[in-house]
């Protein structure tokens, strides 16, 4: 059997990769930790081959994704996951609350924005988060996602569209991105009492958030 010494170093190197993949798909850190543990136990059984392989990162990511999708379909199949997936109600997307940044609005750092984006991603409903993650992080096509999740192509497109729209408000919190998005979205931006566009949407949002 494999010596646990080198395996512990391997574990240290790849734990964040595996956990990140799992938590983004599952949206629950506790479940992601269980999946990560299962992935590493599988890796331990094949450690002799894996330690020599240059594609170990890819292997771990693929196994994690497969285990997460299996987990979602197995344990939530009859309960919420597939009822979520097959729900065609256009108004079914839930709003999520965005936590206030730690720092003052003016000094809001990009780290805060990244933290908010990560939180918002994990708070998306499963039916929206899973296809979005597969599209943007695993770079699967819409067709591949539909085949993978066994749902229709139009459902994949609609769910990803809704997920992006839900994340739009987080993107607009960062002044630079606010301007980038604002070029096309002037009609969607809030205006003050005099009908003037706020100087920064970040400042504007912070008034509501804090």
């Amino acid at each position: 059997m494999t010596d646990p010494g080198p395996f512990e170093a391997f574990l240290r190197d790849y734990q964040n990769l595996v956990f990140t993949t799992a938590v983004r798909l599952l949206g629950r850190p506790e479940e992601a930790q269980d999946i990560a543990q299962e992935v590493f136990l599988k890796a331990y059984e094949r450690f002799d081959q894996l330690s020599q392989s240059p594609t170990v990162g890819g292997w771990l990511k693929t196994v994690t994704t497969n285990l997460c999708l299996n987990h979602l379909s197995r344990y939530r199949a009859r309960l919420s996951f597939f009822t979520d997936f097959f729900s065609d109600d256009p108004d079914s997307s839930r709003e999520f609350e965005i936590e206030a940044p730690d720092t003052a609005c003016q000094q809001a750092q990009e780290a805060d924005f990244k933290r908010l984006l990560e939180q918002a991603l994990q708070k998306l409903p499963t039916r929206q988060r899973v296809p979005l993650v597969l599209y943007h992080f695993d770079e699967l096509s819409y067709e591949e996602i539909a085949a993978r999740l066994k749902i229709s192509l139009s459902k994949v497109k609609t769910d990803i569209f809704r997920a992006r729209e839900a994340l739009r408000k987080v993107l607009r919190l960062l002044p630079g991105l606010d301007d980038e998005l604002a070029d096309r979205d002037l009609d969607q931006e809030p205006r003050d009492i005099q009908g003037q566009k706020p100087t920064s949407l970040w400042q504007d949002r912070c008034l509501f958030i804090t």
Binding site: T20, F40, F137
Partner: peptide, 27 residues
Amino acid sequence: RLETILHRELRKLPPVEAPSSLIADVM
């Protein structure tokens, strides 16, 4: 435009820190 910007920003996200207990649990 939203798709492009979101893709860029999501790809810039750093990895999520694994819980400190993960290594101990696996071992």
